[in-house]
Nucleic acid binder design. Structure first.
Length: 567
RNA sequence: GAGCCGGUAGCUCAGUCGGUAGAGCAGCGGCCUUUUAAGCCGUUGGUCGCGGGUUCGAGUCCCGCCCGGCUCACCA
């Protein structure tokens, strides 16, 4: 902590001022002010003339403050220009961090628009409305008898303007003396626009709402150190607009997801995370210990079996959004705890689920990014339905020249083939795992566009219903986007005798060395004996979905507090 | 687990061949009533991740450890 800020804290208390007051009467979040007085352009082409007041280098090119008749607009360009000279730029009009900006701008010869007219169109006059807003002080610019600054909340930033003649000597000096960058401040005053057109609160009164005892990260570069950004995510959120954007997006996706599922007659439920048998997926669980019961419990690897028990119980459509825990390696696309939505619908089969999935993605994309074509790691992904469909064994045959009967035939010949194409540990994998690994190795990497891979081999799908046209297959699909498995779904196996046999097969697999093979859940079999209606179920990985929408290549960027070793 | 890269001021980063540890921002003291990466003048600030070694001398070279990133493995 900073010595000086601690002294201020002490001095405030001595003056009888509580640096941590109980409440603040505010009228708006900052973003609401902006919504009221500003509309967002939609990327229309404009060309404007003005003087380059400041040229700043950023990662890709330059940001220019272009001024005409004292009104300013930001220009993002790769063109190199000199300050204080006049230029004409043509580009797309967008609002970036609250400011009207011409992006992808190129030098041009003729200006068809005036900055003044653009501003009048999108920035309305606030008519000195009286407002009270709170936020963290992120900039202070002293100007003698006036002070400018910015306060920020999650919804945005707004400029504050303090004048000695309005506040009076004592309050003005109090601000200079006691308010630091990082403090939470409440201000009351009138909204106006400055000469350059920026929405600003002319402060009539202010109150310290909480003292910040540490200096803030650097204002221009933000907080870059990845380790610090994850360990102290609050600082990341204060300093980096991109971090705020991603987690607001994540929240929006969850909200849209609930809206969509609720509107389709699904009921949201919660099932146990602590389980005595961790089943429903192929993975190694975390183990924990219950002191009172004196027994080991597992953190769930999937909610699947519980959700199907609910369908048996008469819930026709259920969904659960929740964490699953898998005791596996950690990398760019795997976190030991991750969020899934898993859902089940009576009377549906996997064809219904594919339609539903298409509809869901369209709903999600239109309400977040506003487009069905999104850019991910330099590639354009097109979510216009219908999505591509590819049969599992047809893909395999296309890539290897070997057909289904080969892969499902003699295990040793499959093993030989796996060794040939350098599948790791081919000599000790079970038949099921061999096929799975060969598929991952040869087929998955080419699946960039959204694709339903359908009709998986039965031996790697112990909970899926046998294919109605082929006893070697099950009615299952994985939804693959940008080579990642985004969803996994099937027509549910509801024959208790078949299910029991499949579990027995899994136990054999486990005995043959597959640690991830599924455990038998006796109560689940009993539930099936009471009758599970025809049902289809699906799980969608929320973290990977957010990665896709946010265009980020690391799962840690979309998890607020990713796991790190203690420092 | 292995390889590579990184850890230097609160933050973002430089630091050459081993020779007294730097910049910008933030901070502090001034000037400035429409500024906005404000500007101008002055100025404080270091366990160079930790421990050991080589050397007259180590941020720099060597060894070990810790934390992070990337890649490959493990998990399977």
């Amino acid at each position: 902590m900073e010595e000086l800020r601690l002294e201020k804290l002490k001095s405030l208390k001595e003056k009888g001022i509580n640096p941590y007051p109980y409440r603040f009467d505010f009228t708006d979040f900052i973003g609401d002010l902006r919504k009221r007085y500003e509309t967002d352009p939609k990327g229309e082409t404009v060309s404007v003339k003005g003087t380059a007041k400041r040229v700043s280098r950023v990662e890709e090119g330059f940001v220019i403050r272009l001024a005409d008749e004292n009104l300013e607009i930001l220009v993002f360009t790769e063109e190199q220009v000199e300050p204080k000279k006049e230029y004409v730029f043509e580009g797309k009009l967008l609002r970036i961090e609250g400011k009207l900006s011409v992006v992808d701008a190129k030098l041009s010869s003729e200006a068809k628009d005036k900055i003044k007219e653009i501003k009048e169109k999108y920035d309305k006059e606030p008519d000195r409305e009286e407002v009270a807003v709170g936020g963290r002080v992120v900039a202070i610019r002293e100007m003698g008898k006036a002070i400018f600054g910015h306060i920020q909340d999650l919804s945005g930033k707004v400029q504050i303007y303090l004048r000695k003649d309005i506040l009076g000597e004592e309050r003005f000096e109090f601000f200079r003396e006691y308010i630091d960058l990082g403090d939470i401040l409440g201000v009351k005053g009138k909204l106006f626009r400055t000469q350059t057109g920026e929405l600003t609160v002319e402060v009539e009164d202010f109150q310290l709402l909480s003292k910040c005892l540490h200096p803030l990260p650097e204002k221009w570069h933000g907080l870059r150190d990845v380790e610090l950004r994850y360990r102290q995510r609050y600082l990341d959120l204060i300093a980096n607009e991109e971090a705020r954007r991603i987690f607001i997006l994540r929240s929006k996706v969850l909200s849209l997801l609930r809206q969509f599922f609720d509107s389709k007659g699904f009921i949201e439920v919660e099932t146990p995370i602590l389980q005595t048998v961790a089943s429903g997926a192929a993975a190694k669980p975390f183990v924990t210990y219950h002191n009172y019961l004196e027994m080991n419990l597992f953190l769930r690897i999937a909610p699947e079996l519980y959700l199907k028990k609910l369908v048996v119980g008469g819930f026709p459509r259920v969904y659960e959004i929740g964490k699953n825990f898998r005791n596996e390696g950690v990398d760019r696309t795997h976190n030991p705890e991750f969020t899934m939505v898993e859902f089940y619908a009576s009377y549906w089969d996997y064809n219904d689920l594919m339609k539903f999935t298409e509809e869901f993605f369209v709903y999600l994309l239109e309400n977040t990014l506003g487009t069905l074509k999104l850019e991910y790691e330099g590639k354009e992904l097109d979510f216009t339905p219908p999505f591509k469909r590819a049969r599992y064994f047809e893909l395999l045959e296309e890539k290897t020249g070997k057909d289904k009967s080969f892969f499902l035939g003699d295990v040793e010949r499959v093993r030989e083939f796996a060794k040939e194409i350098e599948v790791k540990h081919a000599d000790r994998l079970t038949h099921a795992k061999l096929i799975d690994k060969i598929f991952e190795k040869v087929a998955e990497e080419d699946l960039v566009q959204p694709t339903f891979v359908i009709d998986f081999p039965k031996i790697i799908s112990p909970l899926a219903k046998t294919h109605r046209e082929d006893p070697d297959l099950v009615e299952r699909f994985e939804f693959i986007v940008a080579t990642y498995e985004l969803a996994n779904a099937y027509t549910e196996l509801n024959d208790p005798f078949d299910q029991k046999e499949r579990f027995v097969e899994q136990i054999k697999e486990k005995e043959m060395g597959d640690e991830e093979a599924m455990d038998m859940d006796e109560d689940f079999i009993r539930a099936l004996e009471y009758g599970l209606p025809p049902t289809a179920g699906e799980g969608i990985g929320i973290d990977r979905l957010i990665m896709l929408l946010a265009n980020t290549d690391s799962i840690r960027e979309v998890i607020l507090f990713p796991h790190l070793r203690p420092s």
